[in-house]
Design a protein around this nucleic acid. Structure first.
Lengths: 375, 375
DNA sequence: GATAAATATCATGGAGAGCATCATTATTCG
DNA sequence: CGAATAATGATGCTCTCCATGATATTTATC
C-alpha cells in the first residue's frame, strides 16, 4: 500500500549508503570517518569504503585536519559543494533575480534586474537573459557548467516548463520557460510556481525547517499559497494545488482591495496603520480578515504544523502576524504556529535552487550523473 | 530533502526483497518462481532463495500445480492470507459493524448491530463488545488470534486511540477506544476518524484505486472529508485534516438543514426530488450547493485527481453526482473526476481493516513479527 | 515407444557489500 | 621518553545476489 519499497540489487544498497554519507557530510563543515560511521549507522570499515569511492568520483574531498585532541589526528572529509553549480531564477512582476549556487545551495553570485508588471513577454525574457548572463559572468562560469536550473514565476505551470496561465503578467501565458532557459544553460530546467517555491525554500532554510506539513502564504500585491506535505512540495494533479484564491467566498480576490482603497501605495498603509492612522488600521484589519479566511480553509483542510507568511507585506509583520493569528484562532480547530518568512524576497529564488538541487541529487541516486566529465 | 533513504545492512536488502515478493504474491492467486522473478526484478535464483525463506517462516505456501502447457510443470506459490487475522470495527451513530479479515483483507465474517445516536457511552461500548464477540465466534476464533485491530468512529481521535472530541455521539468525548478494544483482542489497536478510513478504503478497493491524490466526501447526516495524498492517508499535525466544515463561510454546517427543512426524513427528500417534487428538488439543489462549496475548498487546496462521494446520501447518486460536478465546475480551476463510492456503508470498516493490515505489514518489514508463534 | 523440445529445478562458483577484529601508526599528556 | 589515546589499514568472514550449466520432468512428434 504505502509506496514501493522495491528492493533491489547490492549496488542499489551501495547507492543508498553513498547518498546517506553525502547527506551527513552536507550537513556539516567536515567530518572524520568515525563520525560519518556513527551518523550513518554504517560500520567504520564500510564508511571508509564508501568515502573512498566518493573521493574517487569527485563528490568528496579531504579537508584540513583540525588540531587539538589526543590521539592520532583523524583525516577529515567534506562534501565538495564546489564540484558543481546550479542556477536559480525568479521571474516576477517587479524584478528578475538570478543566482548561481554550489551544491550546498550556498549562493555564489546573484544578479537582480528591475522590471515592471507592464512589460511584454519579449522584454521580460530579455531581462531574464541579461540577469542570467550577468550572474554567470560574475561567477566566472559558462552556461555549460550548470548542472540544473530552477525557475520560479507567477501563474500556473505545466509539467514540462510552460506557463499555462498567468493573469498577473501580460503575454506570459504560453511561454516555454524551460526551453528559454535551456538555451542559456544546456541542462535540465525545472519550472515551478513562485508560491510553491517559496514554500519549499522556507522548509529548506527558513523558519519551517523541521515541519512535516506546512502552508506558505504569499501576502503581497498578489495572494497565493504553497503547500509542503510530508516534507515534500505538494503539486497536485495538474500543478494547481493551493489555488484557494479562486473561491470568492474566501475573499482572497478582494483582500488586496482594502489596502489600495485606503491609500495610493499599498506598502504605505501598513506604515500608516503602525503610526496610528485610523482609516489605515481599518483597511489592514479588513485585509487580514480576508487573508485569514482563505488561510483558514487551507489550515482546516491540511492541519499543518505551521503557517509561514511571506511576500512583500511580510515586512510589516508587526501589524500583520498577530492579527492573523487571532483571526485563524476564530475559525480553526487547532491554530498552527504562525511565523514570518525568514527569507524575504529571496525565498522564491532559493526555492528554485532547491528544485535544481533535488534534480541533481536524484540523478546522483540513480548513478546517472557522470560527475567526472564535469571536472 | 526528500525523506530518509537511510540505506543499511544486507539483511535490510533481504527484507525489502522479501516484502517485494510478498507484494507480488498478494496481487495474484498463485505464481511460479519464474513469474515471481520477473515481477520483482530479482534473478530466478534469488527469487527462489527468498521464497524458500518465506516458506520456512510461514508467509508463503505451495499451491497446487496447474496442468496444461509444455515442459516441466512449475511449482506454484501463494501468499498465506490465512496465516493471520485482523479485526475491523466501525462504531457509528446507527450501527456497529465488526469484521474479521485475512491478510489479503478478504472479509471472513462480519457482525452488524443496530444502535441509536442517542445511546450513551456504556451502551454503545457494550454493543461493540457484542458485535466483536459475535464476529470472532462466527469466524471460530479467540481474541488472541487477532494480529491487529482497526477502529473507525466519528469525531477527532488522538494519536493513541482516544476520542478527543465527538459532537455527534453523546458521552463519546474522552473514550479510550484503543484500550477498550485491546481488552477484546490483545493486539495493537489503531483508531481513526471514520471519514479518513472511508477514504483509505476507496483508495484501496474502491473507485480511487490508482489515484495518487484524492478527496473523499462523506455526505450523510453528517458531512465530513478524508484525504489521501501521495497514496497515503493524510492525518495532519493533530489528526484534524479535512475538517473544512468548521468554516461557516463554506456552508457544511447548514448544508444538511435544507434537507431536513423540506421533509421529516432526509432520505425521502432525494426520492421526492427524483419523483419530480419541486420543493424537494430545491432542497436538494441547495444542499448540493453548500456541499460543493466546502468540497471546492478542498479541491482547490489539493488539486486531487478524484473526488469520491460516500456516506448515506451516496445511494442517491443519480440526483447528487451530476449537480455536484456542475457546482464544482463553477469554482474549481480544474474539476477532478467525481465518482460515487463503490463500497457503500462498508467503506469505514474496510478502511479499518486496511489500517490494521498496514500495521501488520510494517511489522513484517521490520522483521518484528514472530509469525511462527502464531501458527 | 523413442526422441526432441520446452521448461523448471538444483548446484556451483563468483562478485559486491558490509562487518568484526587486530596490528599499526600518529598524536598528546605526564 | 613512555603511556595513553584514537585513527588507519589489512585480513578474513558472512550475507546477498547473480550467471551458468547440469539435471529433472513434462508434452509434442515421429
Amino acid at each position: 500500500m504505502t509506496g514501493e519499497p522495491a528492493g533491489g540489487d547490492l549496488s542499489r544498497l551501495r547507492q543508498l549508503n553513498a547518498l546517506a554519507v553525502i547527506r551527513v557530510l552536507q550537513g556539516q563543515e567536515s567530518l572524520t570517518l568515525t563520525e560519518v560511521a556513527r551518523r550513518t549507522g554504517l560500520s567504520r570499515a564500510s564508511a571508509e569504503d564508501v568515502v573512498r569511492e566518493l573521493l574517487r568520483m569527485g563528490w568528496v574531498a579531504e579537508a584540513g585536519a583540525t588540531a587539538g585532541g589526543v590521539g592520532r589526528p583523524a583525516r577529515r572529509y567534506r562534501f565538495r559543494a564546489d564540484a558543481g553549480r546550479v542556477l536559480g531564477v525568479d521571474i516576477g512582476g517587479h524584478k528578475v533575480l538570478a543566482v548561481v549556487a554550489d551544491l550546498d545551495g550556498d549562493v555564489l553570485h546573484s544578479a537582480r534586474l528591475p522590471v515592471t508588471p507592464e512589460m511584454g513577454r519579449l522584454e521580460r525574457l530579455e531581462a531574464v537573459d541579461r540577469a542570467v548572463a550577468e550572474c554567470l559572468e560574475g561567477a566566472g562560469m559558462s552556461g555549460g557548467e550548470v548542472w540544473a536550473s530552477g525557475v520560479g514565476t507567477t501563474g500556473l505551470v505545466d509539467g514540462v516548463g510552460k506557463v499555462l496561465l498567468s493573469e498577473a503578467l501580460p503575454e506570459w501565458t504560453g511561454v516555454d520557460l524551460a526551453a528559454h532557459v535551456r538555451r542559456l544553460a544546456p541542462a535540465p530546467v525545472l519550472v515551478e510556481n513562485d508560491s510553491k517555491l517559496a514554500a519549499l525554500a522556507e522548509r529548506w532554510r527558513g523558519v519551517a525547517r523541521y515541519a512535516k506539513d506546512m502552508v506558505f502564504l504569499l501576502a503581497g500585491l498578489r495572494t497565493g499559497a504553497g503547500l509542503v506535505i510530508d516534507g515534500k512540495l505538494h503539486r497536485g494533479f495538474a500543478n494547481a494545488a493551493g489555488e484557494i484564491g479562486a473561491l470568492p467566498a474566501l475573499g482572497w480576490i478582494r483582500a488586496q482591495e482594502h489596502l489600495s482603497a485606503a491609500s495610493g501605495e499599498a506598502g504605505d498603509v501598513f506604515a500608516a496603520a503602525r503610526a496610528g492612522d485610523r482609516a489605515a488600521a481599518t483597511a489592514v484589519r479588513r485585509y487580514v480578515k480576508d487573508l485569514a479566511l482563505g488561510a483558514s480553509a487551507l489550515v482546516l483542510a491540511l492541519d499543518p504544523q505551521m503557517v509561514v507568511v511571506g511576500g512583500g507585506f511580510s515586512r510589516s509583520a508587526d501589524v500583520l502576524i498577530e492579527p492573523l493569528r487571532r483571526e485563524l484562532d476564530r475559525w480553526c480547530i487547532r491554530t498552527p504556529e504562525v511565523r514570518m518568512s525568514a527569507l524575504g524576497d529571496e525565498a522564491v529564488v532559493l526555492g528554485a535552487v532547491r528544485l535544481a538541487l533535488d534534480d541533481v541529487e536524484e540523478r546522483v541516486l540513480d548513478g546517472r550523473t557522470p560527475l567526472v566529465s564535469h571536472l
